[in-house]
Write a protein that binds this DNA or RNA. Sequence first.
DNA 1: GCCCTGACTCTCA
DNA 2: CTGAGAGCCAGGG
Length: 125
Amino acid sequence: MTVTKTKSPVNPKHSKIWQTVQAIPVGKIASYGQIADLAGLPGRARLVGKALGTAPKEGWRGQSVPWYRVLNSQGKISFPLGSENFERQKNLLQDEQVVVIGVRVKLKEFQWQPDLAELLFVLEH
DNA sequence: GCCCTGACTCTCA
DNA sequence: CTGAGAGCCAGGG
């Protein structure tokens, strides 16, 4: 039969990224590149940023997408200092006991290091 | 299809 | 630490 042109409202790569981001535990953070790798999209860190920007505010599959737990590879917030988004992200992180010094977080202490179980969970989705 | 832009990252100075 | 340059890829004009 003719394939009815169902307009896909959701970019599959984006939803895959959202799911991966949802696996980040409370109080932990991950980098764009790290999420890209876990989502099976190595080298597409920039895509992660774009995906988070279009993430449904209502959440995905019944869960909110914790976009604020994603920072750049240096552990720094990727929004211009002083912007609304910058403040919003910083506040949300601090609400979860993540220490933000200036524009940065100490990766040594807060970067998410998924164990095998968490890894498999993400890969299945 | 070309050109520019961006919530990125890595390397080198 | 800062900055420049080069990869990188998806979107929009």
